[in-house]
Design a protein around this nucleic acid. Structure first.
Length: 485
RNA sequence: GCGAGUGUAGCUCAAUGGUAGAGCAUCACCUUGCCAAGGUGAAUGUUGUGAGUUCGAGUCUCAUCACUCGCUCCA
């Protein structure tokens, strides 16, 4: 990441050049939702295709699937999302602090706790108290003043807080399936793409003749009612995930965990060309009870380090849960081991929109370029140094003069099937180079008067601004090599 | 959700309660033959939205929406 980059510059550039902008801007915007414009869409599709190629198409032991956004509601009860994504929160109007009710109660004295329990008609056990709050909130009972009456202390001030009524925050988005909006028709938009992979595990096993160990990958939308969407697209309410669940024997699971960690790190450094100093890994201190290991791959955004990808050892948790809730066994018979077992899962889970934001931040640069402007020798330019494989436009075809439009358009037609390309003849050549720099086009092809004679064009390279003369009939191979390299 | 701040052309910003402007960008034409050159012209706004105060509101008041920062939250 260049030191000059700020989120403001990225946001402005994205809007100005049609990469990413706010959803429903016509109506004043909609918090937590973002639209991708022509260049943004081209790039996001390219990033997704690159991931898919790397994780699925280049491997024999990973297959793909594409499940629905709305699944059977039991899926999310089994996964724990319906319960764990719903927290009861209160604010202290004095100290402006917000607490999860279970965290707050944990920090109270026994007397206060007993008083709360008495008012709630519950035992003093935190879990039971929380459940009591949940029940009463759902039943619409008035418990607005319970915390005030019990004189609950704010741990940050050690004084009795001026508590707002407890409110339930549910991070799962809900909808209704069927024309009647009733409780039994309630369904959820998926909060992550991986659960339908677990649900489909047996079917895919049977239909693809895959033997363990193997993985199932999926990309797609996920939805969360984030309390506070922030930092451009970093935390949104609708976002894209790219996930792969790898099923294996528990004996080998740590080897596979390490394998996938290394593969994923190589993806960032070798394929997407992130600088080593832009990335770091972070091992989780607190592990879920079923997990043997978990880590995040983080990127340094202008607002600080943020998670791009999680790599998690999930044990047999998900399959066991679905076995329990569905009543269907989720076992695999391993012919080689002559053993029947519930597979252990290693997950790699990327936030595609976060990755896009990271690529934008990593690529952003300002440097100096020569200029023909009066009284100046150099002038600043904004240049997005995207890796060529994911650049929104890979090749721009620019006639030196409008008189050369015919030949340049012919060349464009020739290259269009192989590269994301653009033709531009408006204004001076220098201006067009700068325009392409700003959207990160790695190669500009200049068709000049000599091209008519020698069948060559000038290839101008984005980062160095150096130029090379290349024969038109060798161009496709020449560019292909550069883009893959 | 709380607190503070911000919201004027596509972008960056001006405008004392009294005629809404500039630069850049965009488009057309001329010019130009390899790094935002120059010229001529054009288009662009219910000043985020909705109320209120006022003879008169971009400016003052209230509400609302969005964004930024902090708190909070974060599978």
């Amino acid at each position: 990441m260049s030191s000059q980059v700020t989120l403001e510059k990225i946001t402005n550039l994205c809007k100005r050049r049609g990469l990413i902008f706010q959803s429903s801007e016509l109506y004043g915007g909609f918090n937590g939702f973002w639209d991708y414009g022509p260049y943004g869409t081209a790039m996001r599709r390219a990033v997704e295709a690159t991931w898919w190629d790397y994780m699925v198409e280049q491997r024999e032991n990973v297959v793909g699937q594409d499940s629905t956004i709305i699944c059977h509601p039991q899926v999310w009860k089994a996964s724990g999302h319906v319960d764990q994504f719903a927290d009861i929160m209160v604010d202290n109007k004095d100290s402006k602090k917000r607490y999860r009710i279970d965290n707050l109660l944990e920090q109270q004295s026994e007397e206060v706790l007993a008083k709360v329990a008495e008012l709630m008609g519950s035992e003093t056990d935190i879990g039971k108290l929380e459940a009591a709050f949940e029940t009463k909130l759902q039943e619409g009972e008035n418990i607005d003043s319970v915390l005030l009456d019990a004189k609950v202390i704010d741990p940050s001030t050690d004084k009795v807080g001026d508590w707002t009524p407890p409110r339930q925050f549910n991070l799962m988005m809900q909808t209704y399936v069927g024309p009647v909006f009733s409780e039994e028709n309630k369904a959820y938009l998926r909060a992550e793409t991986c659960q339908p992979i677990f649900v489909n595990f047996q079917t895919i096993c049977n239909s693809t003749r895959q033997k363990l160990p193997f993985g199932i990958a999926q990309t797609g939308k996920a939805f969360r009612n984030e309390i506070n969407p922030r930092n451009f697209t970093f935390r949104s309410r609708e976002f894209n995930q790219m996930e792969m669940e790898f099923f294996c024997h528990s004996d080998d699971s740590m080897d596979w965990y390490n394998f996938w960690r290394d593969q994923r790190l190589a993806f960032y450094s070798d394929v997407l060309k992130f600088k080593p100093e832009s990335m770091r890994t972070h091992d989780h201190d607190k592990l879920a009870h079923y997990a043997k290991a978990a880590m995040d791959i983080e990127f340094e955004f202008p607002f600080g380090w943020g998670e791009l990808e999680g790599i998690h050892h999930r044990g047999t948790w998900d399959l066991s849960q679905h076995a329990e809730f569905s009543g269907q066994k989720q076992e695999y018979f391993d012919q080689a081991r002559n053993e029947k077992y519930i597979p252990t899962v290693v997950e790699t889970s990327v936030g595609l929109d976060r990755l896009m934001l990271a690529l934008l931040c990593e690529a952003y640069d300002e440097d100096e370029a020569e200029t023909a402007k009066d009284g100046k020798e150099v002038e600043g330019r904004v240049v997005m140094r995207f890796p060529a494989i994911i650049a929104p436009v890979q090749v721009a075809i620019l006639p030196l003069s409008k008189k050369l439009a015919e030949g340049a358009r012919e060349l464009h037609a020739k290259l269009k099937p192989f590269f994301r390309s653009e033709y531009d003849e408006a204004q001076s050549i220098g201006k067009r180079y700068r325009r392409q720099d700003e959207i990160g086009t790695p190669f500009c092809l200049t068709f000049d008067f000599d091209s008519l004679e020698d069948n060559c064009v000038t290839v101008r390279e984005r980062d160095s601004m150096s130029q090379e003369r290349v024969a038109i009939d060798k161009l496709a191979n020449y560019l292909m090599d550069k883009i893959r390299g």
